[in-house]
């Protein structure tokens, strides 16, 4: 007795190969498109809530309030949505020990510039955010933790808008009080 297989449709081997090739194309397209299409993008979440060129201390992350996923509950954050449309923006930050950082982000959450507390040898830091004068003067990602040679560091950024994020870990209860005070003294506003 032989099994009747005539009812089973025949799939040609070229269909399998074409499916795999098209699958690779879909894969590459999806990977490159996702950063531009994701509604979970941190910029989209934060930009609407922050006024431009104003430093906003963020309440400590807690179950009741967390601006972004996976924020550290033992790190103070402050954010500034900078907009260079009308000119440079100055970020003034008092030094807070070796662990604090200032990070600049583009709209795809890429941290293109960072300076850490241990690089700052003065009592305060001023970052002057400005547009590039030419392509060659755009910020070099490889030089992202430059030691400041002057009181003001000029950072030339590629995009007109972005985020500056200041982080300061809470090292002790006494340092938390001091950090809180320092966060009140920070500013982010159009350069005079």
């Amino acid at each position: 007795m032989s099994l009747n297989t005539k009812w089973i449709p025949r799939v040609h081997w070229t269909t399998l190969i074409a499916g795999l090739i098209f699958g690779v194309i879909i894969h590459i397209t999806a990977i490159f498109a996702l950063p531009y299409m994701s509604e979970n993008n941190a910029w989209l979440k934060v930009a609407q809530r922050l006024p431009a060129n104003t430093l906003q201390p963020i309440p400590l992350a807690s179950p009741e309030g967390q601006l972004l996923p996976y924020m550290a509950p033992d790190i103070y954050y402050a954010m500034c949505r900078y907009d260079l449309t009308d000119g440079p923006v100055a970020l003034r930050i008092p030094a807070m020990g070796p662990l604090w950082t200032v990070s600049l982000y583009d709209k795809l959450s890429q941290n293109f510039y960072i300076i850490a507390g241990h690089d700052v040898k003065r009592d305060s830091l001023e970052l002057l955010l400005n547009k590039p004068r030419s392509e060659t003067e755009a910020v070099d990602p490889a030089a992202s933790s430059l030691k400041p040679r002057s009181e003001t560091i000029t950072v030339r950024v590629q995009e007109t808008e972005g985020l500056a994020v200041i982080r300061a870990p809470i090292e002790s209860i006494s340092s938390a009080v001091q950090t809180d005070e320092n966060f009140r003294r920070m500013t982010c506003k159009p350069a005079e």
Partner: peptide
Amino acid sequence: ITRSGRLPVM
């Protein structure tokens, strides 16, 4: 990173 909604430091 974009999908996670995080802002990681480099």
